[in-house]
Amino acid sequence: MKHQLLTKIHDHSATVAVIGLGYVGLPLAVAFAEKGFPVVGIEVDGRKVAAVQRGESYVQDIPSERLATLTNDERRTMEGHQPSTIGPRLGRAASAKVEGSAGGVAGAERRGGRP
Rank of each mutant, 00 (worst) to 15 (best):
H3C: 09
K97Q: 12
A17Q: 13
P88L: 04
G87H: 13
I62E: 05
G107I: 01
G36V: 13
M1G: 15
L6S: 13
G55R: 07
A94H: 02
A94C: 05
V52M: 06
E56P: 03
H3T: 14
A31I: 02
K48L: 02
K2T: 12
R66V: 08
G20N: 03
G20R: 00
K8M: 09
Y58A: 02
P38G: 11
S57I: 05
A51L: 08
T85E: 12
F37I: 15
A106D: 04
G112Q: 13
V39S: 09
L70C: 07
T85P: 00
H10D: 10
V52L: 07
L5A: 10
H81S: 08
D73Q: 07
L28M: 14
A29M: 01
V59A: 03
H12V: 12
A108C: 11
E79W: 03
S64L: 05
P63S: 11
S57C: 08
F32D: 13
I19D: 00
G46A: 04
S13P: 11
L90D: 06
A17R: 07
L90T: 07
H81K: 10
E34R: 14
A93F: 14
L28H: 06
K2Q: 12
R114Q: 13
I62S: 01
I19H: 01
A17V: 05
L67S: 04
G104Q: 04
R114I: 08
A108S: 11
P115Q: 08
A108E: 07
G25K: 03
V40P: 06
V59P: 00
G46I: 00
G87E: 14
T77I: 15
S84E: 12
A68C: 07
H10M: 09
T85R: 09
V40S: 09
R76S: 07
G55K: 05
F32Q: 12
V59Q: 01
E109R: 13
R114P: 04
E109F: 04
D61M: 15
A33F: 06
P83Q: 10
A106P: 00
A17E: 09
M78W: 01
D11C: 04
D11L: 02
G41Q: 03
G100Q: 06
K35T: 09
V16E: 15
G104L: 02
I86N: 05
